[in-house]
Design a protein around this nucleic acid. Sequence first.
DNA 1: ACGCAGACCTGTACGC
DNA 2: TGCGTACAGGTCTGCG
Length: 267
Amino acid sequence: MPELPEVETVARQLSARVEGRVIRRLTILDDLLRRETPPPLAGAVISSVFRAGKQVIFELTHDRRPQWWLAVHLRMTGRLLVHENPRVSIPHLRARFRLDQGSLLFVDTRRFGTFGWRERHEDILPNAVEPLSRRLTPRRFRQLIGNSRSPIKTWLLRQDRLVGLGNIYASEILHEAHIAPQRHACDLDDEEIANLTRATKKILRRAIRNCGTTFSDFQDADGVEGSYQNYLFVYGRDGEGCRRCDGTIEREVQQQRSTFYCRRCQH
DNA sequence: ACGCAGACCTGTACGC
DNA sequence: TGCGTACAGGTCTGCG
């Protein structure tokens, strides 16, 4: 489910609510979350919560020294919720962190979500370029693309170059940039790359301001819904009119995933 | 290097 | 009501 703006929203909410809390006990209820063995956690302090790519990172400290970073990847349906009642049981609850006050819950219908335990900060997301960082200039964007002949929509989903974009925002960004999703990445000219860079930052910032997009599964840590779905220009709108020109939004499958675009104003 | 199929899971929507 | 199919915000592996 969640892409960069949704994960950013969750991380901000959790940062306000669980930073400084002490972990009393971790209970893992789904064996799929045990692919990496959790370290002993009792007494660890959640000293910081932040986003890296599409992951929520919890910095865990013992005696004021960071010892582990827990990287939670929500994948399609993962949610992190804070609940005052530590005994609460809700459907698809996969893990519970019992805190000195309340609980942090990991809920995940489809069970694709993962927990990763890192001993070094550098191991969280090596080589990643964050799209909202100042490092992402048109020049850097061009470098990242190199001579890739992938369709640009497909390229935007690669997490080994640029992190955080997913299926919704890739379509929205290309529409904002007036670029057709089928274009070979390496064929984009300088003006198009500049537009793409601008569109990427603009769309992501606007989505973060609106706490992300809500579909059936996404809720932030307080159970509050995002509102960006009211701003979608193309995603999920096939057959409907383009909000920018007289065209009609079409759906096309690329790499087994839906892409939405307007062939009238995206070239 | 790339595209493609299938896998991992569970749920919902829709046609018959 | 029930059954089959398609589809879902993500990512990995194997094959050609």
